Computed example of a mutant assay.
Amino acid sequence: MKKWSVETYYELFYRWQRSGLSKAAFAAREGISKVSFYSWCKKFETNTDSQDASTGFTRIELAEATFQVAVARINYPSGISVELFGSLDPDRIKALVF
């Protein structure tokens, strides 16, 4: 059985979250041990929960910013602001506002 690094499992964890698949289906599709994947997911979910509890947000890393100036900004009554960069998708903006 191949040993995978923490970084590799985190990348798998991140891809699983975006996939919409169950953990078992994702592990089977990727050809990895279901038991190992469940174990790593539990570790990452615990770390993510404690990080989110302190800030209320999850950090999103972008590969490359194409625009330096925000093309739109949404200000919520709570004081939170969301800045949008790049092309605007009306459906995405509606989801953020409502």
Rank of each mutant, 00 (worst) to 15 (best):
M1I: 04
M1Q: 04
M1E: 10
W4N: 04
W4P: 00
W4K: 07
S5W: 04
S5E: 10
V6H: 10
E7I: 00
E7T: 01
E7C: 00
E7H: 00
Y9M: 02
Y10I: 07
E11I: 05
E11H: 07
E11M: 05
L12K: 04
F13G: 09
Y14P: 00
Y14H: 15
W16T: 12
W16F: 09
Q17V: 11
R18K: 12
R18W: 07
S19P: 02
L21S: 07
S22D: 05
A24K: 12
A24C: 04
A24Q: 10
A25R: 12
F26Y: 15
A27Q: 03
A28I: 09
R29T: 14
E30C: 01
E30G: 01
E30A: 02
E30L: 03
K34S: 00
K34F: 01
V35Q: 01
Y38V: 01
C41R: 02
C41N: 03
C41W: 06
C41V: 06
K42D: 08
K42W: 05
K43R: 14
F44K: 03
T46A: 14
N47E: 15
T48N: 13
T48Q: 15
D49I: 00
S50V: 03
Q51M: 12
D52V: 02
A53C: 07
G56S: 07
R59V: 10
R59C: 12
I60H: 12
A63Q: 08
E64D: 05
A65C: 04
A65Y: 04
T66E: 06
F67E: 11
F67M: 13
Q68S: 13
Q68W: 02
A70M: 05
A72Q: 14
A72K: 14
R73H: 10
N75V: 10
Y76A: 07
Y76R: 12
Y76G: 04
P77C: 01
P77R: 12
G79C: 13
G79D: 13
I80V: 15
S81E: 15
S81P: 09
V82L: 13
E83K: 09
L84M: 11
L84R: 09
F85W: 05
F85L: 04
G86Q: 13
S87G: 10
D89Q: 11
K94S: 15
K94Y: 14
A95H: 10
A95I: 13
V97T: 15
V97H: 09
V97Y: 13
F98K: 05
